[in-house]
Simulated assay, not measured.
Amino acid sequence: MTYPDFPAASATLTLPGPAGALEVAVDLPRAEEARPVTAIVCHPLSTDGGTLNNKVVTTAARALRELGVATVRFNFRGVGHSAGEFDHGVGELDDLRAVVAWVRQQRPHDALWLAGFSFGSYVSLRGAKELGADAVISIAPPVEGRGWDFGPIDLPEVPWLVVMGDADEIVDPQAVYAWHAALPDPPVLVRLPETSHFFHGKLIELREAIQHVARDWLPSA
């Protein structure tokens, strides 16, 4: 399969995906700050209006970029200029596989980090071990009541951060905390008080939480 080159400056482009074109946005850190890491950030539920431009997604990407990480956001099938139709997480994982394959081909020496918000955290966590992620960030993972089964996921044994708002009105915070506590090797958990699902008024706190933890994961420049 012929892939476009990884851009030398921030850009949007189209990748061949399993259901057709995939719309991708690449943003690069300042050259003097760049680390050998590429992070792919997955957006929330397509049927609820989730896109690569979601504010939580762009905030997570910005937080990582300020640490010197190249970031890749993309629209799942059926969103924006990505072809196909919503596929309940199955086809969306195939979309992520296609984006990872491109990043691996274009930046083979980079560490691969996977991040996701809400539904995007489900897709990225499902693929993390299979795809060889070196670190994972899960923001407001919908572990209960949204139709996504986290139980059978083969969890990665890599640095992993979960960020959850205590006042999330869509994902039950207590369900997330109970799920986290029951994990055999629980990841770092950051609880943000008085914070809703979409982190209204709390995007700065989200960015700082990600940076505080992920900074320690960075390889040498």
Rank of each mutant, 00 (worst) to 15 (best):
G145E: 09
E33Q: 15
P7F: 12
E92K: 00
I139V: 11
E208P: 08
A83V: 05
F199G: 03
A111T: 00
P16I: 04
W217S: 04
R62N: 14
A111S: 09
G84K: 09
P7K: 02
P156N: 06
H109K: 13
F76K: 04
L13F: 06
P29S: 00
A181R: 11
A83T: 03
S118K: 12
Q106V: 11
S124A: 15
T47R: 14
F198L: 14
D168H: 02
G91A: 06
A175L: 07
A9Q: 15
R104C: 12
L67R: 04
G145M: 13
V158P: 12
D168Y: 04
V41W: 13
F199K: 01
D134P: 05
H180E: 08
R215Q: 12
T38P: 05
I139R: 06
V72T: 08
H43K: 02
V24G: 05
E157H: 14
E85N: 14
A182Y: 06
L155D: 10
L192W: 08
G78F: 11
R97H: 13
Q174H: 10
S121P: 13
E66C: 06
R107V: 08
P156K: 02
Y122G: 00
P7M: 11
A9T: 14
T195R: 01
V136T: 05
L112I: 08
A135G: 13
V143P: 14
D110A: 01
H109D: 15
L15A: 00
W148K: 00
R30W: 05
A61F: 11
V24E: 11
R97F: 10
A182Q: 12
F150I: 01
S138Y: 12
W148F: 15
E130G: 01
V24A: 07
W102M: 11
A63K: 03
F117E: 03
V176E: 09
L13A: 01
F119E: 07
G91I: 07
A98V: 05
F119A: 08
E23N: 04
G91W: 09
G50I: 11
A182M: 07
A70N: 04
N53A: 15
A63Q: 05
V99E: 07
V56M: 11
L28A: 06
W217I: 05
I137V: 15
A221F: 09
L22G: 00
F6V: 03
S46N: 05
F117W: 06
S118I: 09
H212M: 07
D149K: 04
F74M: 02
T2C: 12
G68D: 04
H180S: 10
E32M: 08
N54R: 04
S10R: 00
G20L: 04
L218D: 01
L22M: 00
S46M: 03
F150A: 06
T2Q: 15
P193G: 06
G147R: 04
Q106I: 08
Q174V: 02
